[in-house]
Design a protein around this nucleic acid. Sequence first.
DNA 1: CGGCATCCGGACCGATACTG
DNA 2: CAGTATCGGTCCGGATGCCG
Lengths: 116, 116
Amino acid sequence: MQDEDEVCREVLQIVSLVGDKWSLPVLGQLRGGRRRFGELQRAVPGISQRMLTVTVRKLERDGLVSRHVHASVPPQVAYELTGIGRSLLVATLGLGEWAAEHRVAIAAHRHRFDAN
Amino acid sequence: MQDEDEVCREVLQIVSLVGDKWSLPVLGQLRGGRRRFGELQRAVPGISQRMLTVTVRKLERDGLVSRHVHASVPPQVAYELTGIGRSLLVATLGLGEWAAEHRVAIAAHRHRFDAN
DNA sequence: CGGCATCCGGACCGATACTG
DNA sequence: CAGTATCGGTCCGGATGCCG
């Protein structure tokens, strides 16, 4: 099959969509519904203000989340999963199952390898 | 659900397994069976000798591929998918379908976003 | 042929300070 | 509250050259 590597390239593009350090945690938090900026920062442990800004901006650019501004004092900005974003989360669940199944074996193999 | 972010963390670990630039293309090439080092480098367009070495080393460490050395002159080293590696490839196929389905929409959305 | 060592540019990421 | 701007550290990846 010569379209095997094409599939790999497509998967790579998806990985580049959410493969950075914070995209998946943020998307996971949004799974529970619309969240405000500060809520997200508190819910995702360890993320800096800057990285949250960068991450949601990128996710919005790719159409995975939508941004809703309510002009008031103080200003309120909320983020929400789009249909595409939700479907992507669902697609990653398959990988989650794989992870739960093989994580231990991988860790063990890595440990054995490092013993040399 | 508080195990949602745990799933995200697990997926993140998988992504870190094959989320780099070359792991997926190399794994994809190995899908056809055992391949020698030079074959891999010729089959994966654009990869440097160094990055192929680094990539197969990492994949071997994680137990996704196995390394077979045939001591001879000139030396022959071949790589092969393990069971875990093959199952991981299968798991990524779901993402491949998602990619084929939504890639165009994402590109369009990104283009619209950049127009501002 | 297969692999390692070294150098280097750029991307990613965090901390901090400042703004509407 | 929700950003923006700047600086600095770290790591990935490419180029080159050498070794068994």
